[in-house]
Design a protein around this nucleic acid. Structure first.
Lengths: 333, 333
DNA sequence: GTGAAAGCGCTAACAC
DNA sequence: GTGTTAGCGCTTTCAC
C-alpha cells in the first residue's frame, strides 16, 4: 500500500500540516517535532507523491522541449546543456520529437500545454507563426530555441550566422570564385532564411551575378545533401557553402566518394553544429562556420526558468553569433 | 481563469460525470447529450487538466529514461526510436542525463520513481546492482537498456557483441596479426565486460599470448581515445579493436593526424553505434561492428509499456546481436 | 441514460 | 509552534 502524509502524521503524533511544513521547510517547526517527523518518514519509507503535489500547487517542476530531430547531435547537445541547467534547479525535461513535421508539432503543443509542463522550449518547424501562436494558451511560458519568427511575441534564443556567411562568401569571391553554390536546409525555417539572405547580400556586394539556381534546399533532417550537391556540381560551381550541419557532415563523405578533393577541386564552407571528428580529416581544407551550441542550450534553460518563475519578466530575444573559421585556422583552446 | 469540468457541465446542463464519460468514452452517452457537451467544450475552450487527471487515476502516461549521455548520438537514436513508439501509444518521455555519474543516477532514480512516471528505462552507469535495485520501489516497472546486470530481476534489452568481436579478432589473427590491442569503454559496464571477455576468449583460442596490458579502458563518454591509442601504439600493436562507438569515431581522426594509415600501417576494427559519415571515408579500410540501435530503442519502448500495462508479464531479457562487417563489405540495402 | 457525491494526497489559509 | 480543514479537478461508485 501507498504511504501517505497522514500515515506519517499519525505515526509521528502530529498533524499533516506539520509534516508538510517540515518536509517543505515552509514554516517553523521545532527541532523535536522535526525529529519525530523524519523518524516516522524513515520508518514508513514515505515519499511524497509528486502528482498529488503538482496537482495541488499547479507547479510541475517540468519543462517540455519540442525538438525537430533528437537523433541530430546538434539538438542532442542543446538538450544536454538545457537539461543540465534545469536539473540543477530541480526541474525535469520532457522531450517531444517532431521529425520536422508540423502536425506532430501541433499535437505535441496541445498535449504539453494541457497541464503537463510549466513551460515549453520550442525549436519550431512551423512555417506560420499564427499556427504556433494559436496553440499556446495565453500567458503560457514559452521560449523559442534556434528558430524564431518575425513576430516578437515570445522570448527566443537563436544563433545569427549573417556575418559568418557574409564573410565566408566574400573570402571565396576574393579567391576568385565566381560560381558559389549554397546548400541550405528547410526553406521555411528562420535559420535557413537568414542564411540565404546573407548569401544573397554577399553575392550582390561582391558583384557576382545573382543566380537563384545556385541556391538549393534540403530537408534539414535526413541526409538530403547528395542530390543538392549533384545539382550544384552540374551547374559548374567552383565553391559550395553548406549551411546546415547534418548536410555539411555528409557533404565531405559524399564528395570524397566522387573523388572530388576539397580545396583542390572545389572550395568548401561547412556549417559545424556539434562536436564531430568529421572535420579533423579536413579541417585544413574546408572553411567552417561554428555555432555556439552549448551556450544555446544553456541560455534556453535559463530563459525558460526565468519566464516560468517570473512571468512578468520582459520578453527577451537573445541572439548569439556563429564564428567563421577560414581553413587552416586552429581551434582556440 | 482556468476552465474546469464543472464549467463545462454547467454550460451543457449535465453533470460532471457525464462530461467525464463523454470525453473518455467510458460509458454510454446519448448522441444528444454528447453534442451538448462537445458544444460547451468548444465554446469554453476546455482542456482537461493533465495533472488532476493523473493525480486521480494514478497514471501519468509518462515514461522516464535515465541516459548516461544524451549528446552521444547512440543514445540520441535510442531515445528517438523509443519516443517514437511511446508517443504513438500516448505516452510522454522524460529524459535524465547522468553523464556516467552514479550519484546523478541515484538522484534521478529517486526523483523519477516518486510518482513522476509510470515506468523507467535505465541505461545504468552503476557498478553495483544492489545500489540500483535499492533505489527502485518494489513492483515499479523498469526496463534496463543497453546495459544490464547478472541478477535477472528486471526486463532488459541489450546488444551482444560476443560473436562479432570473437570473429573479428580471429580474422585479424588469421591475417597474421600478433599484437592486437583493445580499446574499451568504462570497465564497470556490462557491455564493456562482455566485449573484453570476447576478446580474451578469441585471443586464447587463436593461440596468441594473453597480454593484459593490451587492454586499455576509456570513460565511454568524452573523447578519451587518444591516450588509449598512444599506449597501444607504444606497445607495438599491429591491430587495434575499438569497442566503443564514440571512441571509435575519434580514433580514425586521431590516427590520421598522426599519419597512421588504417590497413596499411595498422589493422583497425571499429564499433559503429550510430549513423555517421565518418566511416564512409574509410569503410573499405576498417572492419566494423555495427549495433542495431534503432531496434534497441524500439524494443525498449515496447518492453516498458508492456511492464507498465501488464505488470504481471514475466521478466523478459531481449538480447539483440551486433553484426561484424569485415572491411570492403557493402552495407546491405 | 444520467446524476450526486466521495475522495485521490497534498498544501495553505485560518485558527489558537 | 502546531492543528483543522477546505479544497485543487478529476474519475468513478452507487443510485435511480
Amino acid at each position: 500500500m501507498k504511504v501517505t502524509i497522514s500515515d506519517v502524521a499519525r505515526l509521528a503524533g502530529v498533524s499533516t500540516a506539520t509534516v508538510s511544513h517540515t518536509i517543505n521547510s515552509t514554516r517553523y517547526v521545532s527541532g523535536d517535532t522535526k525529529e519525530k517527523v523524519y523518524q516516522a518518514i524513515r520508518q514508513l519509507g514515505y515519499t511524497p507523491d509528486a502528482s498529488a503535489r503538482s496537482f495541488r500547487t499547479g507547479k510541475k517542476r517540468t519543462i517540455g522541449f519540442i525538438v525537430p530531430d533528437i537523433s541530430n547531435k546538434f539538438f542532442g547537445t542543446i538538450i544536454e546543456s538545457a537539461e543540465n541547467h534545469l536539473s540543477a534547479k530541480g526541474y525535469h525535461l520532457i522531450i517531444a520529437n517532431t521529425k520536422e513535421n508540423m502536425d506532430r508539432e501541433e499535437t505535441n503543443l496541445r498535449l504539453l500545454t494541457a497541464g503537463l509542463v510549466d513551460g515549453l522550449l520550442v525549436a519550431s518547424t512551423m512555417d506560420d507563426f499564427q499556427r504556433l501562436d494559436s496553440l499556446i494558451p495565453p500567458g503560457f511560458p514559452v521560449v523559442l530555441v534556434d528558430r524564431t519568427f518575425d513576430a516578437r511575441k515570445y522570448s527566443s534564443v537563436t544563433v545569427s550566422s549573417f556575418q559568418s556567411i557574409y564573410q565566408s562568401v566574400r573570402r571565396l569571391a576574393g579567391r576568385g570564385k565566381r560560381r558559389i553554390g549554397l546548400v541550405a536546409g528547410l526553406p521555411r525555417l528562420s535559420t535557413t532564411r537568414e542564411r540565404v539572405a546573407a548569401y544573397r547580400a554577399a553575392v550582390a556586394d561582391c558583384g557576382l551575378p545573382p543566380e537563384e539556381e545556385l541556391i538549393v534546399y534540403g530537408n534539414s533532417m535526413e541526409d538530403s545533401a547528395p542530390p543538392c550537391l549533384d545539382r550544384l556540381l552540374d551547374l559548374g560551381c567552383d565553391a559550395i557553402l553548406v549551411c546546415q550541419g547534418l548536410m555539411a557532415s555528409v557533404t565531405l563523405a559524399y564528395l570524397r566518394g566522387k573523388g572530388i578533393r576539397p580545396r583542390e577541386d572545389l572550395e568548401l564552407v561547412s556549417f559545424v553544429d556539434y562536436d564531430t571528428s568529421a572535420y579533423e580529416f579536413y579541417y585544413e581544407r574546408v572553411d567552417r562556420i561554428v555555432q555556439p551550441v552549448e551556450e544555446l542550450g544553456r541560455i534556453a534553460g535559463e530563459q525558460i526558468l526565468l519566464r516560468v518563475e517570473t512571468p512578468a519578466a520582459p520578453v527577451e530575444e537573445r541572439v548569439l553569433t556563429s564564428v567563421y573559421r577560414p581553413c587552416g585556422e586552429q581551434e582556440s583552446v
